[in-house]
Write a protein that binds this DNA or RNA. Structure first.
Lengths: 350, 350
DNA sequence: CTGAAAGCGCTTACAG
DNA sequence: CTGAAAGCGCTTACAG
């Protein structure tokens, strides 16, 4: 229970309106007085009351824009749940969401959707940025317009943003490596890495983290090859089928991205071969495969929390000016058949 | 943005005070009018505004009492962090916490501390109940006084409570079993189970869940024996040392509770033997052992979230009357060396 | 540049 | 049993 704006006004001998102007960097205030008020606020340890603020702000409703490559990508179903959870929690305070989704990664499409959100008057944005110069310069523009931006699930270098909310791909690759190491026991493992695309930073980081751990601790894990499936199930199935033929001793698969179902189809057909398979995330595609034991383990990254936190942090920033940490990193979790049912839950996990 | 109490008052042709009385079950209102107001509120889908409520309540500060066997038990350090996080979040609304801790499980001590909290005038309680009749009747008394209670980390049967916040011990035992199954590969595993006490329900459930999975899926995991270490490191070390001597083929340890460090000391001394060790939680004791690879994996249960949610749910109930689910179950996570650094974070994960 | 007033949605005494 | 008023901490027009 901290002091109120009224108390500070009394101490400074000014009106509450003036204190409000000083504290919230509003225009039209004598700089001297402003300094004095800020000093007093600091001395008494003023912290604005969230509830008061929410009520006061109620006339000017806030809208946040979200853009993500969610079409045909089940991973984002969970992200969306988190977005909606936060939206519901702050609906009281006048918050609403506007969500645009696209299929795959098109810079033009992303720009078009972001511009449309901007035109509709959103007060802040969360999106999954494509790592390309046009997106970067768009973000420069947003910064000049004082629109706070959170990069979601995937980050972009050298572009201004409030913060990044997502997982640490290198760390999740390390977890995958450590896990496969444990699964190997002391037997040699001949591993094929299937990645989505060597153009995608996150996929590469998952390979790097994996390789680091294998090199440090598990020399008997041997990497046969790294192949790209473009997140495509058909291609994935083909690649794995070929690999099974080509390397008779192939006994482990590390899948950094999509196309998991396809890869598993090929493995299932080779009924006589038993492979350890490590993948990422818990989706409609991976879940039954984990359930049946074909995928040995999958590494998840709290998609729901990613959505929830992105909205919460933007909202808090707009409400309070509170600065989030530069990177809000979700822990990654190892999923095996026995605890599948427990999907990460809200809890405002906070 | 739902309708306000003012709007309902207008629709019902009464004052806001009367609407407040109807909606919050306050005494002194004509039952007919009350029914009518409730009907209208229902029709328009009234949901009270949290911020408004927090402000309105600000004169009457809320205090919640917490009681737990935290002394000398590192697990509860993380729970406490969660408690404090929630306390900080709702300090605005006048919430404060009163925390009592004890060492071990004494019914008398627990009752004494709960009574002291009650005498100090707490509005709600969260505690780790000992599963004994005197605690049960104490909870009956609390219910009659309309003090909401949340059982934390451990539940108690046949006693009234608002809800249970904690993990599902059987489920975490299943996860342990599934994990050890994967670690075994296709080799036989001669496993010793060391449990805290056969008197503790949670420990037994961890054994049951483990055994279920082993029976269903991993017949080559053989359970040599189940022994009690009373969560004591000395005794634990002794037991494991003896077991290593007695069973030359012992190659796996499943530790359901405390005394992990002691067990590991005995294993480390037997430098020629390599055991798979599965334990629970990430504490000061287990962390370095996971780090060095002596413990293969540990299963954690989001202690911080447990603390956070217990307070949040009590607070919401007192604020809103919002009923939490009967059991709020934390997911359990498999921890291995490679993702130790990522301890579960607030995020109001929720 | 500054203050006084009205209002956000709710609760709590206080009259009647 | 019911209503009118004051107040929680803040913001936003509106005067000056």
């Amino acid at each position: 229970m901290s002091v109120s704006i009224r108390e500070i006004a009394r101490l400074a001998g000014v009106s509450r309106g003036t204190v409000d102007r000083a504290l919230n960097n509003r225009p039209g205030i004598n700089p001297q007085i402003k300094q004095q008020i800020l000093r007093i606020a600091d001395e008494v340890g003023y912290r604005s009351n969230r509830a008061g603020r929410m009520l006061g702000l109620r006339k000017k409703p806030l809208t946040l824009g979200v853009q993500m490559p969610a079409d045909g990508n089940d991973f984002f179903l969970d992200v969306s749940e988190g977005l909606e959870e936060a939206a519901a929690e702050f609906a009281d305070a006048g918050l609403s969401l506007r969500i645009e989704t696209m299929k795959g990664y098109s810079v033009e499409r992303q720009l078009a959707q972001l511009n449309s959100l901007l035109a509709s008057g959103v007060n802040g944005l969360a999106f999954v940025p494509i790592d390309q110069p046009p997106i970067r310069s768009f973000m420069q523009k947003l910064a000049r317009q004082d629109i706070p931006v959170i990069t979601l699930n995937s980050d972009i270098a050298d572009a201004p943003r409030l913060c990044y909310v997502g997982n640490d791909y290198t760390a999740s690759g390390r977890t995958a490596g450590g896990l496969l190491g444990l699964l190997a026991g002391d037997r040699p493992l001949e591993t094929l890495i299937i990645t989505g695309s060597v153009q995608v930073l996150g996929h590469n980081q998952r390979i790097r983290g994996f390789s680091q751990v294998v090199r440090e601790h598990y020399p008997h894990i041997h990497i046969l090859d790294i192949q790209e499936n473009q997140d495509d199930d058909q291609l994935s199935e083909q690649l794995v089928a070929d690999a099974l033929r080509r390397w008779p001793r192939l006994n482990a698969l590390y899948l950094t991205a999509g196309g998991v179902a396809g890869a598993c189809r090929a493995v299932r057909r080779a009924a006589d071969r038993r492979l350890k398979i490590v993948s990422f995330d818990q989706t409609r595609a991976t879940e039954p495969l984990l359930q049946e034991g074909l995928i040995t383990a999958s590494i998840s990254q709290e998609p729901r929390q990613q959505g929830y936190q992105a909205i919460r942090l933007l909202f808090d920033y707009l409400l309070d000016g509170s600065q989030p940490p530069e990177r809000v990193i979700m822990p990654n979790h190892i999923l095996i058949r026995e605890h599948l049912s427990h999907r990460p839950d809200s809890g405002n996990r906070g």
